[in-house]
């Protein structure tokens, strides 16, 4: 056990006019997650500290936040890797509801805008649609997305213009555009060829670095750009 200092950007809509930093000292094990440290503060020091969490092992996407200035899942970062003084702030670019809780509605609206579902109107066979291992591999990486918003809220193009559809939505479009069973790649590519679509991406790679699922997001965006340019999803 050792004592660390968490500097947390707090905002309570019922009492505060603007956000302010508050310090908490808490005892942690080096193998504790940042989420464990936050929970200890909430449970034993200050019940008003508010953040989302559920799975606690990096698969549900609830607890993306800025930890020492970079977007991370609090449950996927260990205390031994962040030092004795840790700054914790909400994601940038969304309205803060309370402390680490931001309004996710605009994020999900962008996600829904890219037709994130399989479209195939031909009559399905009796059994499964066949897909080769190679065709399945083509979009494997982008199936991993947990919609945590770490990528979109790390993107300078998104900070500059909140209408930009953002990396997460493009990742979810990619997942279908390159699925050999899907028939609506054209419609999605049209949507992403829009003013607020893929061309806002300046290949800065922040998204790829922020992704807790290690999805090669910039590469995926590049593949979508290419597909728009060449009108084809062939590799």
């Amino acid at each position: 056990m050792k004592t660390v200092t968490l500097t947390i950007l707090r905002f309570n809509p019922e009492t505060d006019r603007e956000a302010a930093y508050r310090e908490y000292r808490v005892d942690v094990e080096p193998t504790d997650r940042v989420l464990d440290a936050l929970s200890k503060v909430k449970w034993y020091q200050d019940g008003t500290l508010t953040f989302r969490r559920s799975c606690a092992h990096g698969v549900c996407g609830s607890d993306a936040m800025r930890i020492n200035g970079v977007n991370r899942l609090a449950c996927k970062v260990l205390m031994r890797d962040v030092g004795d003084r840790v700054t914790i702030e909400p994601l940038m670019g969304f309205r803060v509801i309370k402390d680490m809780v931001v309004d996710m509605e605009p994020f999900f609206a962008q996600y829904r805008s890219v037709l994130p579902f399989m479209i195939n109107d031909s009559r399905p066979p009796q059994r499964e649609r066949l897909q080769s291992i190679a065709d399945r591999e083509r979009f494997d990486d982008t199936t991993k997305c947990i919609l945590c918003a770490a990528c979109t809220t790390s993107c300078p193009s998104f900070w500059a213009n909140e209408e930009f559809v953002g990396p997460a939505a493009i990742v979810n479009a990619h997942r279908f555009i390159f699925d050999s069973r899907d028939e609506a790649a054209g419609a999605r590519l049209d949507i992403l060829n829009d003013r607020e679509g893929v061309w806002r991406c300046r290949t800065i790679f922040n998204c790829t670095e922020a992704c807790p699922r290690e999805i090669r997001i910039t590469k995926a965006i590049g593949e979508v750009k290419k597909a728009i340019l060449y009108g084809s999803t062939a590799p």
Binding site: F117, N120, E128, L130, I133, D140, R181
Partner: peptide, 19 residues
């Protein structure tokens, strides 16, 4: 399970393309 596949579920595949 076949219905889930038709809904788009990306199952891992066998050599001959089945689930």
């Amino acid at each position: 399970i076949i219905e889930l596949e038709h809904m788009g579920l990306p199952f891992s595949r066998t050599e001959d393309g089945k689930i």
